[in-house]
Amino acid sequence: MGGVIFAPSIFGVLSGCTATGDPWKPVLFNQSQADLTKALSETIIPETDTAGAIEVGVPGFIEKMVNEVYTEDQRLVFLEGLDSFNSACIEATGNSFADLTSEEQFEYAFEMNRIALTEQPTGLPDFFLLFKELTMVGYFTSEVGATQVLRYEPVPGYYDGCMPFEEVGRTWAT
């Protein structure tokens, strides 16, 4: 019927995040899982001159995706991933991830990202990359992520197939 969409996307057709900015009340995650989700998502996308992951509601987005969109098997794997990540962090640093300083959080997460990208056998789902992906989906489909960090035009009006990048300025959100 229409065929194939060649968006350079590992998620298929992308669209949205319901990040609302409302205070998040966990319904699936326990306290330690919730604390980790907040701390790790904010480490991956921190507040700079634009809002960070927590402010745009990414932790709640992640929980809702895991709770509603994931199958039961996927959900259990993810919850187990949160707990294992925290245990490994305590073993390595003596503290749970949420209790580290923001510098320590960055260093630990940077290392986990590096290991996932360079040392993990490819093809296996890696918890850190799964979490990073969920964080990025939630953030860059939020209004702040799409319009302030990236560029979003709800009604472009026309197509120009080849123009200087500087006239657009930033990567298109969609």
């Binding site: 998620f11 057709v13 992308l14 669209s15 949205g16 995040c17 319901t18 990040a19 809702k64 995706m65 509603e68 969109v69 994931y70 199958t71 039961e72 989906v137 939630g138 489909t141 939020s142 209004e143 799409a146 979003y152 709800p154 959100a173 969609t174």
Partner: peptide
């Protein structure tokens, strides 16, 4: 007319 952030769960259906 929905923008990306107006659609729940990244526009995906629940399992």
């Amino acid at each position: 007319l929905k923008d990306p952030w107006e659609l729940p769960n990244n526009d995906q259906l629940s399992a």
